[in-house]
Amino acid sequence: MPGPGVAAYLILSVILFATGAFGVLIRRSPLIVLLALEIMLNAGNLALIAFARQTGTGSGQIFALTVMVVAAAEAVVGLGLIVAVSRRRVDLDVDKLTTLHG
């Protein structure tokens, strides 16, 4: 029995991307924001792989592998920064990061 088609994966990736984007825009904890960013990147990955299947080319899969590496590096830097901020302040809230404004 055939599984869901490429279109279903694309729809899922759009939903994931939208979820991630909303998460970045409305959540306050930097940790959750970082999580939402990872969801956005992985939505891109899913779309790349689905399109690789649809177009019958392999380059999309290689691209997705590369993105995984990049996403991991980004998460490391992000978590490092959050740890550094949390050592300086007790409450983690992006709305309270307002030393810089104008």
Binding site: A21, V24, P30, L41, L48, A52, E74
Partner: peptide, 19 residues
């Protein structure tokens, strides 16, 4: 946060162009 947000949009756009 903002830079990665931009990169993620760029990535999703790249996926669409590739598709």
């Amino acid at each position: 946060i903002v830079g990665s947000f931009g990169s993620a949009i760029l990535l999703f756009g790249s996926a669409f162009v590739y598709g």
